[in-house]
């Protein structure tokens, strides 16, 4: 089920937008990385913290609590203390709207280095 998260103007390049459908457990963070939109689970897989508070760099979103960065394409962290991925969601753009399929979240297999 695609849901409108925000408009394009609310999510400039390098921007991060947190969408909270019901509970923090289900929150999604949508990012604009170089004009491409990505959506991953907002809660860090290590501690109870919102990834939306972190900076977006090189297609990674950092958890500001302990410094694990999550790859927007794969959901996998680059270093400890997080060792498990967050879910990756399907995003689409319709006109000026950014939509996410909030039921599409999947944990992907770890890609080869």
């Amino acid at each position: 089920m695609f849901v409108k998260i925000c408009s394009k103007s609310e999510l400039p390049e390098g921007g991060v937008f947190r969408f909270d459908p019901e509970t923090a457990e289900k929150a999604i963070v949508v990012c604009n990385e170089g004009g491409e939109y990505y959506a991953i689970g907002d809660k860090c897989s290590h501690g109870n913290w919102s990834l939306a508070e972190g900076l977006l760099e090189n297609c990674h979103l950092e958890c500001v609590l302990h410094g694990s960065s999550f790859n927007l394409k794969t959901g996998w962290p680059d270093k400890r203390p997080a060792t498990k991925p967050v879910k990756v969601f399907t995003v689409k753009v319709e006109g000026d709207d950014i939509l996410v399929d909030i039921e599409s979240g999947v944990l992907l297999e770890k890609p080869d280095a």
């Binding site: 913290w49 508070e53 972190g54 900076l55 760099e57 950092e62 500001v64 609590l65």
Partner: peptide, 10 residues
């Protein structure tokens, strides 16, 4: 305010 630190570190 860890969110501040995320930026200050950079």
């Amino acid at each position: 305010r860890p969110q501040d630190m995320g930026v200050l570190r950079r």
